[in-house]
Amino acid sequence: MFKKLLTSALFAGFGAGLIAALIQIVLVEPTIFEAELYETGQLVHFGAPQEGAVVEDTHVSHGVGDGHSHDHGSESNLKRQLYTASYEIAKSFGYALMLVAGFALAAERGVSVTARQGIIWGFAGFIAFNLAPAFGHAPELPGSLAAELSARQIWWALTVIASVLGLGLIGFGKNWVMWGLGIVLLALPHIIGAPHIAGYGGVAPPEMAGRFVALSLGAAAISWSILGLFAGFFWSRDP
């Protein structure tokens, strides 16, 4: 059983991870590079920064500190894209393991998952791991101001757990009590609310931050759907 879980997750995670990495590098990462030009002060948006606003992210290792170069094809950017590809594949494998674990749990209850049903599972993963957290706290461009990291991480993790359980209850619940509990679990993190600071102080233009959130969520929706398809495919064909 464990071998079947591991092999289908490995194939699906690697295959979907490659596509996800390509999507991130082509669609999403350029906006991060661009935002860092504002973060490091190489570009200044007319509305920002306000006096007294503190931008916390000052990593020098991001590779944008070398003079006034706007060259996105530089060596350091290539290195970052390779890192991004590696972590995208790792993340995809991690998600795939959870997906096939869910498939196996469903199989225990007599529900079999095909490749096409895998897409629905993948989309549920998108809702739980991306859409629900983003609904309370939008994905952040480098240089944006936010509440304390650990508080946001705890809220993110609890939101994901509550959303997974909520979607599971809606998907597999047999009566209104379970469906109702599922809805409550989905809503609860947003009723409690994500940690936010008062006021705004991001240095990048708001249009760029908006575009980043849209790209991030769109990329995640595509990547999760492909991952679900692949996971369902490899899971259902492995005896």
């Binding site: 991130q24 991001h62 890192y83 995208e88 993340k91 952040e140």
Partner: peptide, 14 residues
């Protein structure tokens, strides 16, 4: 540092 861009792009708090 190496996972930085993936964390931002995936909406993980970073």
């Amino acid at each position: 540092d190496s996972a930085h861009d993936v964390r931002h792009a995936s909406g993980f708090p970073c």
